Simulated assay, not measured.
Amino acid sequence: MAHLIREISIQDVEAFTKLLSSIYDDADYMLYNPGEYAPSQSTIISNLERIITSPSNTIFVAEYNDELVGYAIVETEDLERAKHEAKFTMGVIKHYREKGLGQSLINSVEAWCLNRHIRRIEISVVPQNSTAVTLFKNAGYQIEGELRDKLYIDHKYYNKYVMSKLLL
């Protein structure tokens, strides 16, 4: 499968909104319930402009046949004591999962972090999302802890693993 991983641009606003809605509507363990992600166009543009113009945050998108099919949002702090750490979230449209896109997004995030001398990368994963847990373990991430009852989905509480990787 030939795909392209690149940083997002403001021209991607409509496609990115569609991508997020699609992933959130299909995902079993993401923050949003199906149909719940419905930001205004101005909110999306404002958030993208903030991230695009920030030297300490970025969004990578996975593109296949001119369609956005995955993303990774990377956020860091400007504070001296915390600027060595990045937290990220990612998602891939269900049809494109387990085809190397997740690993490609992780590789892009790690390269971006290395270029900014970021030592620690952190992500949260629901333990029942065994595909994601395995993906991150295979990429060298370790489970550091478990946050109890972080999500409430279909009348049931779910924990989240905090997973991290040290780069430098």
Rank of each mutant, 00 (worst) to 15 (best):
I123K: 06
N138A: 08
E7F: 07
I45A: 02
H84Y: 04
R81L: 08
Q103F: 02
G35S: 07
A38M: 14
D28N: 02
R6T: 14
I153W: 04
I45W: 00
Y24P: 01
Y152A: 00
A132H: 06
Y71C: 02
Y141C: 06
L147M: 09
L79R: 12
E36Q: 11
Y141W: 09
N115G: 14
E14P: 04
E144Q: 14
H155M: 00
V133T: 01
I5P: 11
I106N: 02
I121F: 01
Q128G: 11
G70D: 05
T134I: 13
G70R: 01
L167N: 09
Y37M: 08
L166Q: 06
L79T: 04
G35T: 10
E49V: 04
K160H: 00
E14R: 11
M30L: 09
T134F: 13
L4I: 15
E122P: 03
M30G: 04
I153Q: 04
V162H: 09
V61T: 08
M1P: 08
E85S: 15
R97A: 04
A139I: 11
P39C: 02
S56Q: 09
H95I: 15
Y157N: 03
E144T: 12
E49W: 02
I23Y: 05
Q128N: 15
A82L: 15
H84C: 01
L20W: 03
H3Y: 09
E63F: 12
S22Q: 12
E75G: 05
H95D: 15
E75S: 05
T58Q: 10
I51S: 01
Q41W: 07
A132Y: 05
E122C: 11
V61A: 06
F60H: 07
M30I: 04
H3Q: 01
T134P: 10
Y157S: 03
W112D: 11
I121T: 05
Y64G: 01
S124Q: 07
H155K: 03
N65T: 11
T17N: 12
E146C: 11
E77W: 04
I106A: 03
S22N: 11
T58D: 07
S108Q: 07
E80G: 12
G140Q: 06
I8P: 00
H117T: 04
L105M: 14
